[in-house]
Write a protein that binds this DNA or RNA. Structure first.
Lengths: 256, 256
DNA sequence: TAAATAGTGTCTCTTAGACATTATGGT
DNA sequence: ACCATAATGTCTAAGAGACACTATTTA
């Protein structure tokens, strides 16, 4: 019935995996200023960080950054360590995505891969850019990565899964904050949501998020020490009210 | 930078995991009829299936059913196979939950465990009950499993995670259907939701799910071949309209 | 006729959705 | 004066939430 029961504690008896790698889908949103006469909102694009492989297997292909798990750490720690090595940042949103274990997925042997996804603010990646060899580590748009690139292993599938996941999470949690500064305007927030979920359309977005009972707790107006409201005119002539996220995340339900 | 790059294809060079088990949290909802004079709704309880271990480690403790992954199958297949062995059913809701890799979690060695959860309709487990040794395989309420039982490995943590997950999914997807017959009354649906999420309270539940534009597509009234509406008086004097789930699952969002 | 569930009426206040309008400040 | 973004006004229809009320059977 239960094969756990029948398993010996003699660990050498059966074929065991050849490794447990952690692969990380590192997402960021890049901003590029529009070349207009007046101040305007930047273009934003959802990017994923890839590495060009130097060795067999899949030498020359692009792949997710990653590395092998060790006995002395959890796979989450493996992922965090790899992320640190790759981007130099420690305190970013890092979440487990899925396991990939299709037979033959890695020609090196029986590799059970654990995919994570990280959300990194563009500002952290800027320093890194310079120090790295531009040939080997690069940001691609998600569309590009999924449709135009030769990817190693089953990394296309992993990126596709991660993309689906981040799109869903964007609408159901407050991960938008990972892509925004501490204080932000509502246009910026709206733009970030749309960058990840292009289908997202909300007329009256400002009003809904600020003044409906059920969700106005998500964000709050930013004030300075003396209680004065803070404004930004970075993207517009008319200064826009700045907001910050609270810790509140509303529960969602299809029945309510 | 990328330790995948530095990994040899000589698979024997590093310490590798001693096994990749799949553990399954099998949930079901049991019904027990109330002993009242009149017809009434049954008590329902969310249960989890556990197995009493016979061997070291954790001999005598209760544990999740599970087994070791093989090189020739995905871990999802491992889980499905174990589920089949355990409950005798194949086509049930089975989903990946999380990976558990804390060092030392299994005294037998470096075991990276993959937890799944399955939602099984009570009717499938009924046959099994008889044929199994009641001492070794048993259904427990989730509360009991979490608070009163001595559990093997990190299975308490896994069950707690699975419980959180199923509660969230219950409100955001239509997994309620896994615990219901093909045709059901709205009281049954409401009761199933409340069994998994006790905090769930909706006055006007009937009206909301049947006649609000945005979510009435979730379920539809059940009709017979000639278009007559179907009713059930299993739980009440007054016959109740029967419904079925459609394939439609509304999108949820905290911003909409 | 009472028990137990099924389902509707009604009222108020809030929200959705669509669109028009006004506000601000720099070039 | 005009541009680009910020924000409010206004109107209608729909929905939320509370609670009282009616309906249907059968023991």
């Amino acid at each position: 019935m239960d094969s756990t029961e029948n398993q010996p504690y003699n660990v050498g008896k059966y074929r065991t995996p050849d490794g447990a790698p952690a692969d990380i889908v590192i997402f960021t949103i890049t901003r590029t200023e529009k070349q207009t006469a007046k101040k305007s909102l930047p273009y934003r694009e959802l990017m994923v960080l890839l590495i060009r492989r130097k060795r067999w297997p899949f030498a020359g292909s692009w792949a997710l950054p990653g590395g092998f798990g060790k006995e002395s750490e959890t796979l989450f720690e493996t992922a965090r360590r790899e992320l640190m090595e790759e981007t130099g940042v420690a305190d970013v949103h890092l979440d487990y995505l899925n396991v990939y274990s299709k037979p033959g997925r890695d020609p090196r042997g029986w590799m059970i891969s654990h995919a994570f996804f990280a959300l990194v603010n563009e500002k952290w990646l800027e320093k890194r850019k310079a120090q790295d060899d531009a040939e080997d580590v690069k940001l691609f748009t998600v569309t590009e990565a999924l449709n135009e690139l030769e990817l190693a292993f089953d990394h296309r599938e992993i990126i596709a899964d991660a993309y689906r996941n981040i799109q869903q999470q964007m609408l159901v949690t407050t991960i938008a904050k990972e892509f925004l500064p501490e204080l932000f305007t509502l246009s910026e927030l709206y733009q970030v949501i749309q960058t990840v979920v292009p289908e997202f359309k909300e007329t009256n977005f400002i009003r809904k998020i600020t003044s409906t009972q059920s969700r106005k707790g998500i964000i709050q107006v930013a004030c300075d020490a003396s209680g004065e409201k803070l404004y930004s005119n970075q993207y517009s002539q008319r200064p826009a009210q700045l907001y910050r996220f609270t810790d509140y995340v509303p529960d969602v339900s299809i029945y309510t």
